[in-house]
Measured scan of single mutants.
Amino acid sequence: MPVRRGHVAPQNTFLDTIIRKFEGQSRKFIIANARVENCAVIYCNDGFCELCGYSRAEVMQRPCTCDFLHGPRTQRRAAAQIAQALLGAEERKVEIAFYRKDGSCFLCLVDVVPVKNEDGAVIMFILNFEVVMEKDMVGSPAHDTNHRGPPTSWLAPGRAKTFRLKLPALLALTARESSVRSGGAGGAGAPGAVVVDVDLTPAAPSSESLALDEVTAMDNHVAGLGPAEERRALVGPGSPPRSAPGQLPSPRAHSLNPDASGSSCSLARTRSRESCASVRRASSADDIEAMRAGVLPPPPRHASTGAMHPLRSGLLNSTSDSDLVRYRTISKIPQITLNFVDLKGDPFLASPTSDREIIAPKIKERTHNVTEKVTQVLSLGADVLPEYKLQAPRIHRWTILHYSPFKAVWDWLILLLVIYTAVFTPYSAAFLLKETEEGPPATECGYACQPLAVVDLIVDIMFIVDILINFRTTYVNANEEVVSHPGRIAVHYFKGWFLIDMVAAIPFDLLI
């Protein structure tokens, strides 16, 4: 008679799926529990143990900040960024110097990925580790590398530091407007667009060049630039800015003055950032001319202004700041037409079709709590990747769950009947059967004279019903998954307890 339990259901295979997918890609990662103190490590794979030199037993239950890997060259700011990422709910990448158990130093890129439950609360953290440099290539500990984003994938490793954006290309926007319009339909740009040429040739750093990471940081200074100062900065030398009595002219307006920039070969870094931020506020060169004239017309309804409409929906549905990093990277690809469009465009503009998908598509409701890094690593669709929660398995109709209350009560009843059979069957065979043979035949009273025979008949009927119930009862397979398919249940029961239950259900007393 089957006594099969499996009270692990309803099970959740999400954690096993993450481990299996990460292991298949030869990654070095740990999984931490966000619900406990210090976000203790609950799993670390073999790749991480080989990377740091510690065994799994030495890593388990330690804080996922990996303070046991810190050393003299470990930056405090990087460690603080990892700790801050564990307090938030967004994906974050941090470069930090770690030390192995043998004392060797290596520069590592740590990717902190939160995993949320159905309520939107962070319950786990996945920390992925990628070695960037070994100890002989690690720089000085005073050099802070965590304020910069990861290198873009479309640049060669040897040319990542030679990417320079020439400031004269930004200063000569109005001069290039006529050349853009003359391109017409034969050019790649839309009317009114501004073409910015980027020099990728390796050259020595000069005062006129600005690194790509500095251009990325310009967006942080746009908020500090007032509207009046932006307007004066875009007017140009024809209309000098008016300053109040006793007030000095704005240095932001002076930063885009061609006369002032041409007199000296070098520009201050602050002026460069502010000038680029001011130019980015204009949607095209037409807006710059309109600002000089004193009238700013409404933005025209053409394809170039609607190019950012799908980007707005993608940004609203993005799951991490990696989408913004990807957008900034692609927006700086050289030799393309940049349409400086305000994100607050007309909502009635139709979304044009684009061959290049900048932001990841909208994630469906079932995966809105899973970050983009987890979705990318697992390579699963929205119909396959579940949320991290207890999910009731989908069972067929008329199927009994093996952990249901009805099955528990039924098993206790069958257990009592088995005990009765084990006690009274030998007793009936030894004593009652002998008395029946010696006594007179009682054929007239039937079952009324033999109450134990009636009980034995009921017990046999219950055993037959138990066999039928076992054909529709779920079970737990070797992978700790609840199986509810009727065919698989029948095959599993035939290979197991079916023969024993059938022999126990045969009414031998009635056959004798």
Rank of each mutant, 00 (worst) to 15 (best):
G238H: 14
S261L: 07
V110Y: 01
P202V: 01
G262N: 15
K21Q: 12
S179P: 08
I96D: 01
I330H: 08
G345P: 08
T329A: 13
S275A: 07
L267W: 11
L200A: 15
E372H: 15
R281A: 15
A282V: 05
G186N: 07
R100V: 01
G236F: 15
G47S: 11
N12M: 13
D136P: 14
A253R: 11
G184W: 13
L87A: 15
R159Y: 11
T17C: 13
A80N: 04
L127W: 01
R4G: 13
K101R: 13
R301W: 11
S284Y: 05
A307S: 14
E289F: 04
S272F: 07
A121F: 13
C39V: 07
P168G: 14
S209M: 05
R328T: 12
R5D: 09
Q61M: 09
T216A: 10
G246C: 10
P386E: 04
A223H: 14
L316I: 14
A34C: 06
N128F: 06
I288E: 07
S207I: 15
V222T: 06
R356M: 05
V279P: 06
Y54E: 01
V384T: 14
K135A: 08
P240F: 15
K161W: 10
D286C: 14
D102S: 06
E50Y: 08
M137Y: 09
P151V: 13
G226F: 08
V196C: 05
S104E: 14
E208F: 04
E118G: 10
F22T: 07
I30A: 01
F348D: 12
D111H: 14
G246V: 14
Q81P: 01
N45A: 06
L349K: 14
V325P: 12
G226L: 10
A260Y: 14
R159P: 06
S351H: 15
S264I: 14
T65G: 03
I333K: 11
R176L: 06
E58C: 01
A303F: 14
V94W: 01
S209I: 13
V341S: 13
G224P: 06
D355E: 10
K101Y: 01
I126L: 11
G294R: 05
V341C: 13
R56E: 03
A142I: 09
A40K: 08
G103N: 08
L155K: 09
I30L: 11
F129M: 05
D323T: 09
S153T: 15
G139W: 06
G345Q: 08
A78P: 05
G24K: 12
E214L: 07
A89L: 08
M218E: 12
E37K: 07
V41H: 01
D219F: 04
A175K: 14
A244Q: 14
L107N: 15
K362H: 14
F48V: 01
S354K: 04
R242M: 11
A78S: 15
G226E: 06
H302Y: 07
C276T: 11
K332Q: 12
A293G: 10
V370H: 03
A172E: 12
N117L: 07
D16I: 11
R27W: 10
D346R: 08
P386C: 02
H143M: 13
D119P: 06
G238N: 14
R20L: 06
A228N: 15
G381H: 15
H302L: 12
G184F: 11
I333L: 12
P202L: 01
K135S: 14
A260P: 05
K21N: 08
R92S: 13
E91M: 09
V3C: 08
I19T: 05
A34Y: 03
R27K: 11
E118F: 11
V132M: 07
H254E: 15
D355W: 07
S209K: 05
P347C: 15
G189E: 06
C265M: 15
V198S: 05
R4W: 12
G158I: 15
A160M: 11
A193F: 05
N257L: 08
A285L: 12
G47A: 11
P241A: 13
T353N: 14
G186F: 06
E289G: 04
G6K: 07
Y327T: 14
A303D: 05
L349Q: 05
A204N: 15
R273Q: 08
